[in-house]
Amino acid sequence: MLQVSDLTVQYGSYHAVKDIHFSVQEGELVVLLGSNGSGKSTVFRAISGLVKPTAGQIQFDGKNITGIPAHAVVKLGVSQCPEGRLLFPQLSVLKNLTLGAYTQRKNSAAVKEALEQVFSLFPVLLEKKHQPAGSLSGGQQQMVAIGRALMARPRLLLLDEPSLGLAPLVVDQMLQAIEKINCRGTTVLLAEQNAHAALRIAHRVYVINSGRIVLEGSRDEMLGDERVKEAYLGI
């Protein structure tokens, strides 16, 4: 479904990512694992059309989407939930969610169906749909951010650090929700620095360090790799 080849993104003289290769098959839950500043968010921004790559190619379903505008990427079926949530805190939960459905705005039935799916995934948001998003807890705000990305009805969902700043119990709930999203048929690419969380649900893992892919393999292979244990699991 997604093929990233020789991807390089440069800010001035600084290479945020360099010559990255990885792929995501339809139906997979793939994790891009790396510490803060390793280049994960830059990769996501390049896929989403928010930054233009210096070199390389990004293909989605065999179509070259390298450097096309972000709104066009969403229309093709790729939606991103950004790091830090980036909600509109004064707007209601419902307003924040419906903003994510702008590609479906002429199809009220599709918007209604997407809302129902989000509320079935996160029932607490139905109870709080008329409250300002900024009044919710951190975990609930993350639910809104994920729900907003799902409102575009993506085939590929990019989740950038969804566990960041959340309590362990809330992280568990978030992981369960992400697994449900994947089981319902949405392919997921998850960027995480929380290896304990990511390796619990991943099908495959790519480890990124200083803008380069340094390791790749299945979840079991990563759990058994001494370099991953030492660097990310503290074992």
Rank of each mutant, 00 (worst) to 15 (best):
G217K: 09
L29P: 08
V170H: 11
R227W: 01
V205A: 09
I208G: 13
S79K: 04
L169M: 15
S5W: 01
G37R: 07
L29E: 07
K229A: 15
P82I: 10
K229L: 15
E116P: 00
Q104C: 07
L126S: 12
R204V: 03
V170Q: 12
E127Q: 15
I146C: 04
S48Y: 05
V205N: 07
L150K: 09
G49S: 06
A177V: 05
H15K: 15
Q57V: 09
E116N: 12
V78T: 10
L150N: 07
T42L: 09
L121M: 08
L94Q: 13
Q80N: 01
K112M: 03
V74L: 11
S79W: 05
S13M: 10
P53G: 10
G37C: 10
T103E: 02
Y102R: 00
Q142Y: 02
T8M: 06
I58Q: 02
I146W: 06
F22E: 04
H130W: 08
I146Y: 07
A46Q: 03
N36H: 06
T66A: 02
C183W: 06
N194L: 12
L33W: 06
R105P: 09
R184W: 06
G37A: 09
G134S: 12
Y206E: 13
T98F: 00
D220C: 01
M222D: 07
Q193A: 06
F88N: 13
L29D: 06
H203Q: 11
F44A: 11
L115V: 04
A46D: 03
R184L: 13
G37V: 13
G211N: 15
V17W: 06
G37T: 15
K95L: 03
A198H: 04
Q176G: 13
L7Q: 14
L87R: 10
V207T: 15
D160W: 03
R184C: 12
L33F: 05
H71Q: 14
I68G: 00
L125T: 07
R200N: 10
N64S: 13
E83T: 08
D172E: 11
T42Y: 07
E226R: 15
V111A: 04
R153I: 02
V4H: 01
V9S: 15
Q3S: 14
L150Y: 04
S23C: 05
L29M: 14
Q3A: 10
L115W: 02
K40I: 03
I47E: 00
K128L: 11
K95S: 14
I208A: 15
S38L: 05
F60L: 03
P123K: 08
A149F: 04
R204Y: 09
Q193G: 09
I65T: 08
K18Y: 13
T66C: 01
M174A: 04
E226T: 12
L189G: 06
Q80W: 00
Q57G: 00
I58E: 02
A70H: 10
L158A: 08
I181K: 03
T8I: 01
A167I: 08
V9R: 13
L94P: 01
